[in-house]
Design a protein around this nucleic acid. Structure first.
Lengths: 205, 205
DNA sequence: AATGAAATTGACATCATATCAAGTTCTGAA
DNA sequence: TTCAGAACTTGATATGATGTCAATTTCATT
């Protein structure tokens, strides 16, 4: 019951797409986002210049987005993890585990994420993608801030959940970028532990 | 004892520089960083295309940096403010005041800061400038984390001061950008208060 | 008045993007 | 089997931005 593609035309197309993506991935990692051009990609992929535009009409942005999407998917999984905690201690454990998970993901995809970081400033499409992820993370964290207030285990019951969620998210985010860009020598465990400690003490009583 | 510039040549040059900067400022605010070109600036400034490069050899980056420098100077003042606190309550008051100050500065220079934000992703020079400011802020805050530990008013005495400082800095930073980019409806007082509360509860006992 | 330094200028070389008309390959209907 | 036309490929080209430079003008000094 296989539905194999014996269609030689679409096989040819698939092959072109694959070659473009593979060449692009190597070049992005080697030269970064800005300094990788469509003609470089086409040349390395051994396809005509126009071919890149045939399959990726929006050009470099679209090629890069296609490549980065699978990396980002991993982060979405974390961002979408539902969770419930009943005490400060439980929260500490949970948050610490999630930060550790994010650090691991960042290290794992370090090279492409460094390019992603560069691209956020340059490509509107990428910027939007990161904005979406950020919002999702913040909304997820905010839900737990609300839970904490409802369960009366937060310092106050009138916290603005989004601002409080931002404390955790933005701190983690920026530390992840530092790890990705090799801009820190602080051990990852120290980073995870300190952030978790300050945040849980800050929110929970 | 005036040392007036009666030198007509340098007056002419000064005038060209002034015209370029004024035109650039208006165009940057109107069109943003990326969509403002040197030829637009030269045309609006009513000088030749090459004149812009005569006075600003590094082009758009240098023109923008010159314009934004005075805005940034205000932030440096805050980043360099020495302070000492002896209790959690004092810390709360101090931090809350500083955040409020930063919010006020951001609102005051909103339009140029929005362009600045865009430029950070595009211009290496601008990115470096913001990196410097960030580092300075973090070092300043870190000093106070160390103080808190020395005075034994922190939850722990083995916090990593830079990571903890980052909790405050990155949170404030990102909320300022949201205000500057009109991406939040949360009242500024609520923002300042929530951040201060979570951070001081997080660090001080 | 003559000299040359300072300042101005726009043409030009360079480079990247995006489009497109022309050519080639392949499928499916007649 | 044939062949019309869809799918795919291709590089030339238009567009637009940057940075450089040789020619020119303005001006201070001798």
């Amino acid at each position: 019951m296989k539905k194999e593609k014996v269609d030689r035309r679409s096989m040819r197309a698939e092959n072109s797409i694959k070659k473009v993506l593979e060449a692009a991935k190597a070049l992005f990692i080697q030269h970064g986002f800005k300094d990788t051009t469509i003609s470089m990609i086409a040349k390395h992929a051994d396809v005509g210049y126009g071919t890149a535009y045939t399959h990726f009409p929006k050009g470099k942005d679209e090629i890069f987005l296609t490549i980065i999407e699978e990396v980002i998917a991993d982060f979405y999984v974390v961002a979408n993890t539902e969770y419930t905690v009943n005490s400060k201690e439980e929260a500490f454990t949970f948050i610490h585990r999630n930060i550790t998970r994010l650090i691991e993901l960042s290290v794992q995809h370090k090279k492409m994420l460094a390019v992603f970081y560069e691209s956020i400033g340059i490509s509107a499409a990428t910027k939007e993608m990161w904005q979406d992820i950020s919002d999702r993370f913040i909304q997820r964290i905010a839900q737990n801030v609300v839970q904490a207030m409802e369960k009366n285990i937060a310092h106050r019951n009138d916290f603005d959940e989004e601002i409080v969620a931002g404390v955790l998210f933005y701190t983690v985010e920026n530390n992840l970028w530092k790890i990705i860009l090799d801009q820190t020598v602080t051990p990852q465990g120290v980073i995870a532990h300190n952030i978790t400690e300050v945040y849980t003490n800050g929110l929970y009583k």
